[in-house]
Design a protein around this nucleic acid. Structure first.
Length: 213
DNA sequence: TATATGATCCCCT
DNA sequence: GGGGATCATATAA
Protein backbone atom coordinates (compact mmCIF):
# COMPACT_ATOMS: atom_id res chain seq x y z
CA UNK A 1 0.00 0.00 0.00
CA UNK A 2 1.57 3.25 -1.12
CA UNK A 3 1.30 6.38 0.97
CA UNK A 4 -1.01 9.04 -0.42
CA UNK A 5 0.77 12.28 -1.23
CA UNK A 6 -1.05 14.16 1.50
CA UNK A 7 1.38 13.38 4.28
CA UNK A 8 4.41 15.44 5.27
CA UNK A 9 7.67 13.50 4.98
CA UNK A 10 9.96 13.16 7.98
CA UNK A 11 12.20 15.82 6.39
CA UNK A 12 9.41 18.37 6.93
CA UNK A 13 9.84 17.92 10.69
CA UNK A 14 13.64 17.73 10.51
CA UNK A 15 13.90 21.54 10.41
CA UNK A 16 14.10 24.43 12.93
CA UNK A 17 11.23 24.05 15.37
CA UNK A 18 9.68 27.52 15.02
CA UNK A 19 9.54 27.01 11.26
CA UNK A 20 7.75 23.68 11.65
CA UNK A 21 5.38 25.24 14.21
CA UNK A 22 4.48 27.95 11.72
CA UNK A 23 4.15 25.61 8.74
CA UNK A 24 1.84 23.20 10.58
CA UNK A 25 -0.83 25.90 10.95
CA UNK A 26 -3.81 25.19 8.72
CA UNK A 27 -2.99 21.54 8.19
CA UNK A 28 -4.95 18.58 9.44
CA UNK A 29 -4.46 16.41 12.49
CA UNK A 30 -6.05 13.00 11.88
CA UNK A 31 -6.82 10.25 14.38
CA UNK A 32 -8.44 6.92 13.62
CA UNK A 33 -10.10 5.24 16.59
CA UNK A 34 -9.98 1.45 17.10
CA UNK A 35 -13.52 1.18 15.70
CA UNK A 36 -12.47 2.99 12.52
CA UNK A 37 -14.00 6.36 13.37
CA UNK A 38 -11.98 9.15 11.80
CA UNK A 39 -11.37 12.31 13.85
CA UNK A 40 -9.73 15.33 12.30
CA UNK A 41 -9.12 19.00 12.93
CA UNK A 42 -7.39 21.99 11.40
CA UNK A 43 -4.33 23.06 13.39
CA UNK A 44 -4.85 26.62 14.68
CA UNK A 45 -2.28 27.04 17.44
CA UNK A 46 1.22 25.70 18.12
CA UNK A 47 4.18 26.37 20.38
CA UNK A 48 7.90 25.75 19.77
CA UNK A 49 10.16 24.11 22.36
CA UNK A 50 13.90 23.85 21.76
CA UNK A 51 16.59 22.34 24.03
CA UNK A 52 18.27 25.69 24.75
CA UNK A 53 14.99 26.84 26.36
CA UNK A 54 14.61 26.07 30.11
CA UNK A 55 10.85 25.54 29.63
CA UNK A 56 11.58 22.63 27.28
CA UNK A 57 11.34 19.14 28.79
CA UNK A 58 14.52 18.23 26.91
CA UNK A 59 16.49 21.14 28.35
CA UNK A 60 18.36 19.01 30.91
CA UNK A 61 19.12 16.20 28.53
CA UNK A 62 17.32 12.91 27.91
CA UNK A 63 14.91 11.75 30.61
CA UNK A 64 12.48 8.86 30.80
CA UNK A 65 9.49 11.14 30.25
CA UNK A 66 10.94 13.16 27.37
CA UNK A 67 12.74 10.26 25.67
CA UNK A 68 10.67 10.67 22.50
CA UNK A 69 11.84 14.25 22.03
CA UNK A 70 15.29 12.88 21.33
CA UNK A 71 13.97 10.35 18.85
CA UNK A 72 13.27 10.79 15.15
CA UNK A 73 11.47 13.93 13.94
CA UNK A 74 7.90 13.42 12.81
CA UNK A 75 7.02 11.29 15.84
CA UNK A 76 4.76 12.16 18.76
CA UNK A 77 5.78 13.23 22.24
CA UNK A 78 2.78 12.85 24.54
CA UNK A 79 3.08 13.62 28.25
CA UNK A 80 0.87 13.98 31.31
CA UNK A 81 0.46 17.44 32.78
CA UNK A 82 -0.88 18.37 36.24
CA UNK A 83 -1.55 14.70 36.88
CA UNK A 84 -4.74 14.93 34.83
CA UNK A 85 -4.33 16.07 31.24
CA UNK A 86 -2.17 15.06 28.32
CA UNK A 87 -0.40 17.26 25.77
CA UNK A 88 0.45 16.32 22.17
CA UNK A 89 3.73 17.35 20.58
CA UNK A 90 5.46 16.50 17.32
CA UNK A 91 9.22 16.00 17.47
CA UNK A 92 11.33 18.30 15.29
CA UNK A 93 14.97 18.78 14.27
CA UNK A 94 17.54 15.99 13.91
CA UNK A 95 17.61 12.90 16.14
CA UNK A 96 19.22 13.55 19.50
CA UNK A 97 18.56 17.31 19.72
CA UNK A 98 15.38 17.25 21.83
CA UNK A 99 12.90 19.68 20.25
CA UNK A 100 9.17 19.59 19.55
CA UNK A 101 6.05 21.51 18.58
CA UNK A 102 3.13 21.51 21.04
CA UNK A 103 -0.23 21.37 19.26
CA UNK A 104 -2.55 23.55 21.34
CA UNK A 105 -5.78 23.83 19.36
CA UNK A 106 -7.56 22.55 16.27
CA UNK A 107 -10.81 23.39 14.52
CA UNK A 108 -12.80 20.14 14.63
CA UNK A 109 -13.62 18.88 11.12
CA UNK A 110 -14.60 15.20 11.33
CA UNK A 111 -15.83 12.98 14.15
CA UNK A 112 -17.26 15.74 16.34
CA UNK A 113 -19.61 13.34 18.10
CA UNK A 114 -16.75 11.06 19.11
CA UNK A 115 -14.72 14.07 20.19
CA UNK A 116 -17.54 15.22 22.46
CA UNK A 117 -17.71 11.70 23.86
CA UNK A 118 -13.99 11.77 24.66
CA UNK A 119 -14.43 15.16 26.27
CA UNK A 120 -17.58 14.06 28.06
CA UNK A 121 -19.47 17.16 26.99
CA UNK A 122 -22.49 17.88 24.82
CA UNK A 123 -21.82 17.51 21.06
CA UNK A 124 -23.19 21.01 20.56
CA UNK A 125 -20.31 22.58 22.51
CA UNK A 126 -18.02 22.80 19.47
CA UNK A 127 -16.10 25.67 20.99
CA UNK A 128 -14.86 23.49 23.86
CA UNK A 129 -13.93 20.38 21.86
CA UNK A 130 -10.26 21.00 21.06
CA UNK A 131 -9.39 24.49 22.28
CA UNK A 132 -6.34 23.97 24.50
CA UNK A 133 -3.81 21.10 24.57
CA UNK A 134 -5.52 19.13 27.35
CA UNK A 135 -8.92 19.33 25.73
CA UNK A 136 -7.45 18.41 22.36
CA UNK A 137 -6.00 15.19 23.78
CA UNK A 138 -9.30 14.32 25.45
CA UNK A 139 -11.18 14.90 22.19
CA UNK A 140 -8.67 12.88 20.14
CA UNK A 141 -8.43 10.24 22.91
CA UNK A 142 -4.66 10.46 23.28
CA UNK A 143 -2.57 9.45 26.28
CA UNK A 144 0.95 8.24 27.01
CA UNK A 145 0.31 5.07 25.02
CA UNK A 146 0.44 7.31 21.95
CA UNK A 147 3.90 8.61 22.77
CA UNK A 148 6.58 7.96 20.16
CA UNK A 149 4.31 7.15 17.21
CA UNK A 150 5.00 8.48 13.69
CA UNK A 151 2.67 11.12 12.25
CA UNK A 152 4.13 10.55 8.78
CA UNK A 153 2.19 7.42 7.83
CA UNK A 154 -1.46 6.40 7.68
CA UNK A 155 -0.45 3.09 9.26
CA UNK A 156 -0.25 5.06 12.51
CA UNK A 157 -3.39 5.74 14.59
CA UNK A 158 -2.49 9.44 14.31
CA UNK A 159 -0.97 11.51 11.55
CA UNK A 160 -0.86 14.98 9.97
CA UNK A 161 -1.96 15.56 6.39
CA UNK A 162 -2.13 18.52 4.03
CA UNK A 163 -4.97 20.95 4.71
CA UNK A 164 -5.30 24.62 3.87
CA UNK A 165 -2.05 26.53 4.48
CA UNK A 166 -2.26 29.81 6.36
CA UNK A 167 -0.85 32.98 4.75
CA UNK A 168 1.84 34.93 6.64
CA UNK A 169 -0.61 37.81 7.13
CA UNK A 170 -2.89 35.46 9.11
CA UNK A 171 -0.17 34.26 11.47
CA UNK A 172 0.46 35.95 14.83
CA UNK A 173 3.25 35.23 17.32
CA UNK A 174 2.73 35.59 21.08
CA UNK A 175 4.49 34.46 24.25
CA UNK A 176 3.72 30.86 25.17
CA UNK A 177 0.96 30.04 27.64
CA UNK A 178 1.71 28.96 31.19
CA UNK A 179 5.51 29.41 31.14
CA UNK A 180 7.03 30.52 34.45
CA UNK A 181 10.69 29.42 34.47
CA UNK A 182 12.66 32.52 33.45
CA UNK A 183 11.85 36.01 32.18
CA UNK A 184 13.43 35.15 28.83
CA UNK A 185 11.35 31.99 28.40
CA UNK A 186 8.20 33.84 29.47
CA UNK A 187 8.77 36.59 26.92
CA UNK A 188 9.88 34.48 23.95
CA UNK A 189 7.31 34.84 21.10
CA UNK A 190 7.20 31.15 20.29
CA UNK A 191 3.43 30.61 20.25
CA UNK A 192 1.87 30.77 16.80
CA UNK A 193 -1.83 31.28 16.21
CA UNK A 194 -4.22 31.85 13.32
CA UNK A 195 -5.18 35.50 13.75
CA UNK A 196 -8.70 36.25 15.02
CA UNK A 197 -9.76 32.61 14.97
CA UNK A 198 -12.47 31.96 17.60
CA UNK A 199 -11.22 28.43 18.36
CA UNK A 200 -7.73 29.46 19.51
CA UNK A 201 -7.05 29.04 23.25
CA UNK A 202 -6.08 31.93 25.48
CA UNK A 203 -7.68 35.19 26.51
CA UNK A 204 -8.19 38.23 24.30
CA UNK A 205 -5.09 39.73 25.85
CA UNK A 206 -3.00 36.59 25.32
CA UNK A 207 -4.05 36.47 21.69
CA UNK A 208 -2.74 39.91 20.85
CA UNK A 209 0.58 39.37 19.14
CA UNK A 210 3.05 40.35 16.48
CA UNK A 211 2.94 39.40 12.78
CA UNK A 212 5.03 36.32 12.07
CA UNK A 213 7.18 37.84 9.35
C1' DT B 1 12.63 8.47 50.67
C1' DA B 2 10.63 13.19 50.54
C1' DT B 3 9.01 17.27 48.68
C1' DA B 4 7.85 20.73 45.12
C1' DT B 5 6.06 21.59 40.76
C1' DG B 6 3.82 22.00 36.51
C1' DA B 7 3.66 23.44 28.24
C1' DT B 8 -4.13 22.68 32.21
C1' DC B 9 -8.95 22.86 32.93
C1' DC B 10 -13.11 23.73 35.42
C1' DC B 11 -15.94 25.94 38.57
C1' DC B 12 -16.67 29.67 41.49
C1' DT B 13 -17.13 34.66 42.41
C1' DG C 1 -9.62 36.50 37.70
C1' DG C 2 -8.67 33.15 41.40
C1' DG C 3 -8.12 28.57 43.51
C1' DG C 4 -8.41 23.47 43.64
C1' DA C 5 -7.86 18.90 41.44
C1' DT C 6 -4.34 15.24 41.08
C1' DC C 7 0.05 12.61 40.11
C1' DA C 8 4.32 11.58 37.33
C1' DT C 9 8.57 13.53 37.30
C1' DA C 10 12.51 16.13 38.79
C1' DT C 11 15.34 17.42 42.26
C1' DA C 12 16.93 17.50 46.86
C1' DA C 13 18.19 15.09 51.01
Amino acid sequence: MTEPNLLFPAAFYDRPTLQVARDLLGHTLVRVLPDGTRLSGRILETEAYTPDDPACHAHRGPSERARSMFGPPGHTYVYLIYGIYHCLNVVTQPVGEGAAVLIRAVEPLEGLAAMAEGRNIAPTAVRDLARGPGRLCQAFQLDRRFDGLPVTTTRSPIWIEHGTPVADAEVLTTPRIGITVTPEAIAAPWRLIVRDHPLVSGTRRQNCGQPYV
